[in-house]
Design a protein around this nucleic acid. Structure first.
Lengths: 193, 193
DNA sequence: CGCGGGTTTGATGATGCTCAAGCCCGGTGG
DNA sequence: CCACCGGGCTTGAGCATCATCAAACCCGCG
């Protein structure tokens, strides 16, 4: 149940032998079924969730009722409304399971306690934040300068998991195109990879 | 020389009376003239810069030689290649002064020392990071879902400084449109605000 | 005064959206 | 087990937005 988590941590920092065991107690395991919501916009996001198994998406809904997919999370990824989690404000994003999933939840309080107890985790989360900023910036540059097809190819290259597992309409929203356009791009790409 | 900095800090955390003085010593003031570069892609970014006066931009250059403006920074803003600063890797962004500017530079070492000495600054930088992520995410959603004109109007509303002070071509790049398109949008908007 | 970079304007074309219809497939109820 | 939904994906036609290319314009500066 904790394999993915420890492999994510050990990719970034060294853990003492006993620390792995200690870390477990700060997390609350949770199973969630396809289509269930982990977070509704308007609530306060009380935890960040690590995905051990399955897949989720976060998305906002604009004034016209259109969904905008902001991120996906498969095994080994974190997902949350970070702003709401850190500040205690109301969440602007919804989080929904796209598959039956197994999560490890970390509340603000657990996190703080863990950071005090296990020094290496400070570094782990700082690296996560940093990577998050870098990838947001890359996505931003891509979204501003690349064609729809290029963005699709890039996603296919960097994150084939998402493309093979998420429904087309959600991928389209994530890329900022309509489902029709993505359908045509996909045909195009399958002909000439 | 430190007015903007202290007002930025005091907006977010309380400082003890003597702390303001202490903080100063961690920064290195630097003046930089219009068109000078604070950072070249390929170097390591050794500091984050706080803008007391003036204006800068950060931008990347793609394989075809096209510039992509990633951010602007006016008075009261920080600018850096965060990834390079935090990890020590080579910078992918250039930073250039668009006006004669007065900066306060903070190196990695100074920053670490300051965080140890002055507890409130931990919080200050965490809030900065958090705001940075939130604003990147907002910009991303906007860039994926809004028309060029809507993005321009939004920028005009949120950050009129940039629009009045930066050259059109750089604003265009920042918004992900061509200078021609932005010129037409600007005419359009000036007619019907 | 003339040069040159940046901006504006115009004409044309590509990319991607909208609307509409058809298709495919998994789930449900008879 | 089959018929029938119904949601999601595909396909098509027409249209809006924005890019490209080219030329003119403007203005600060040598």
């Amino acid at each position: 149940m904790y394999e993915q988590l420890f492999s994510s941590i050990r990719d970034r920092v060294r853990l003492a032998d006993n620390e792995a065991e200690e870390i477990k107690r700060f997390f609350v395991p949770k199973k969630i079924r396809k289509r269930q919501f982990l977070l509704n916009a308007g609530e306060v996001c009380r935890y960040i969730a690590f995905v051990e198994k399955g897949m989720l998406r976060s998305f906002s809904v604009d004034l016209q009722g259109h969904e905008q997919v902001v991120s996906f999370a498969c095994e080994g990824w974190w997902i949350s409304d970070l702003s709401s989690f850190l500040s205690g404000d109301e969440a602007v994003y919804n989080i929904e399971a796209l598959e039956d999933s197994e999560l490890l939840l970390l509340t603000t309080e657990s996190m703080e306690e863990m950071l005090n107890h296990i020094h290496g985790m400070e570094r782990y989360f700082r690296l996560l934040m940093q990577n998050h900023i870098v990838s947001l910036q890359r996505r931003l540059v891509a979204s501003l300068n690349y064609s729809a097809e290029d963005k699709y190819r890039k996603l296919l290259e960097i994150n084939p998991d998402i493309i093979s597992r998420a429904p087309l309409q959600h991928i389209a929203s994530y890329l900022g195109v309509t489902p029709e356009t993505l359908s045509r791009i996909r045909k195009q790409v399958s002909r000439k990879p």
